[in-house]
Design a protein around this nucleic acid. Structure first.
Lengths: 346, 346
DNA sequence: CTGAAAGCGCTAACAT
DNA sequence: ATGTTAGCGCTTTCAG
């Protein structure tokens, strides 16, 4: 027992309401569920009794028969607090919540932090507390994914998934992601359009993160039939990593005139390096970032031209996918488009 | 209906397990709930069948009879994303989750963002989905507080509550807060011990926030029987506010030799003003902050001496209070102690 | 348009 | 140590 027994107080039930209003339980049930075939007069009477008694339907009972809860779990694996620092998660969650709210569903957020949490969360999801789950960020192939499979719980995976060699493809499971590849293409095409000819990239950890792989691929897509051989330096999505990678690029290719940096955080580091090396931005080197984290992109010197993702829309989409309100274009996975936001750095 | 019907798949029930293992439902129930009086042999057999069938107990059914869910709601009113920017909430939530996990309870986080959310969250809480709720930050007197009262749902209020004139006192409801007054005393006593004689304070918005009231009271406590008349300037807990208030103080009291700033964020602004005015810290003016947000306090120049609150412990305490595992010293409310963290600014 | 009755899956006396 | 029996509070046929 978790909470002490004294915590339970008897609440009015459907039956109480029925007795008070002189109708049957069925009728009260109909009123509550807004069914048509009840006389207005009766509806009013029942409604009055409900509010007098302060009656609230017992969801457990309802759930037992309907198999529905009107609640959706959002499961967040939370490595090193990053979720709360990065506005990404905040925006995503907001989109999810708003879309679910539109459909009368309550989003409940669960955290996965320590190993023990897995079992408890699995029990929670398996226990029928929710109608479905949105998991973020979780690798397909995750232990929880198996559990969800076995339970037949509707689920959508989203965020920035990590994929490694040997991870099984699971085409059955819905998935939402930003258009990392297309966004990178936008960025590099912009640099090309600016007339830049020696376009380098500071890539993300493409041995670890899918998004980094895709952004690098987008860079290559554009340079393939173009102007400049690929000049790639890998970093780890941190500011310092971006600064170091920029230094390495300048050492190896002193003549570069543009750089696509695969995240705004890394780009802020890269800008610092460029400044230290006396390169003017954008005159000598044009810089484009990725993410459009305004807290970074608007405050760098110069402000950062970068690729924007509509993160809230991604959240909404995840919710809509789960609610099966939307037929995904091809299969259950959806890619959310990006757009370029021009500021001063390119 | 929120999720489409196809989402439901029949899962094995207690009865299925009982039939398969050739015992009664009661026995299976006993095995699941770890009761003693079952033969080891039978326990093993039942366990095997359970895992073969992939049986997971239906919580709704269980809940309907036990009136317990093993879940606790954490309700967060989220004005302007501040929850996700401020590490305060992150730490608090971590404490809550960990303590609940210790007792096998699952924390589920709900957000209160838009007016519509109230009704849905109230339904959720009233629907028996959870055994109790931790609400943060919420004024006693809040609409949701009433609902919780009426439902008899065990609840703990926490965080930095806002209290205004006319808000009812509600002694029945548990409450956790940091020791704002005691912490402020520590800060000012430290400045006194350093030999400072003209000690000013940049107070928080004490017309709006309880914490600001208490921190100012702590400052006055120490100066009452001491060295320096109170020199008070009010600001709004922002960085700019702190900078402006510091400027005002310097104008009015050019001879001040120390200042207690009621939040680290304001203190970072105050330090900037002092630098601009050519005052050395701590030689000319000693500065103490409040909160110990390390992302600020460790990176200011000089690093900030400040009052630390054990926020995770506050979270744990809120959970423990809810679980009634702890007898609160006096009444259901608890004040968590603070301590001074010395860095270079005082 | 309304009521009666069955049953969702589980636990908790009460027997045995 | 195990089985039997009632419900928990609700929705949902099925009658009327």
């Amino acid at each position: 027992m978790v909470l002490t027994q004294r915590s339970y107080v008897r609440r009015p039930t459907l039956e109480d309401v029925a007795r008070q209003s002189g109708v049957s339980k069925s009728t009260v049930s109909r009123v509550i569920n807004g069914e048509a075939r009840v006389r207005t007069e009766v509806v009013d009477r029942v409604r009055r009794v409900i509010s007098e008694l302060g009656y609230v339907p017992n969801q457990a009972a309802r759930q037992l028969v309907t198999h529905r809860t009107n609640a959706v779990a959002v499961v967040a694996a939370q490595p090193e607090n990053r979720l709360f620092i990065d506005p990404f998660f905040d925006l995503l969650l907001r989109g999810i919540r708003r879309e679910l709210a539109l459909h009368g569903a309550q989003a409940v957020l669960l955290f996965l932090e320590e190993p023990d949490d897995y079992a408890r969360v699995a029990d929670y999801l398996g226990g029928g507390h929710v109608d479905g789950a949105i998991l973020f960020p979780l690798r397909p192939g995750d232990r929880l994914a198996e559990i969800i499979d076995r339970l037949g719980l509707p689920a959508v995976f989203g965020g920035r998934p990590l994929l490694r060699d040997g991870d099984p493809e699971r085409p059955g499971q819905a998935h939402v992601d930003g258009d990392n590849r297309g966004g990178a293409r936008l960025a590099v095409q912009h640099l090309v359009a600016l007339g830049r000819r020696r376009i380098a990239t500071v890539a993300g950890p493409y041995d670890q993160e899918n998004s980094a792989v895709d952004r690098l691929a987008g860079y290559r897509d554009v340079l393939r039939d173009a102007v400049s051989p690929p000049l790639v330096e890998r970093a780890d999505y941190t500011r310092q990593g971006g600064a170091d990678a920029m230094a390495a690029l300048l050492d190896r290719h002193p003549d570069l005139d543009a750089v696509f940096v695969a995240s705004d955080l890394m780009a802020s580091g890269a800008l610092q390096t460029l400044r230290e090396r006396g390169r003017r931005v954008p005159e000598d080197v044009a810089v484009v970032g990725f993410d459009d984290l305004t807290s970074i992109a608007e405050t760098t010197d110069p402000p950062l031209t970068t690729v924007h993702q509509d993160i809230e829309e991604m959240g909404r989409l995840m919710a809509r996918l789960l609610l099966a309100r939307e037929d995904a274009p091809d299969g259950p996975s959806v890619i959310v488009p990006t757009r370029l936001v021009r500021r001063a750095s390119a």
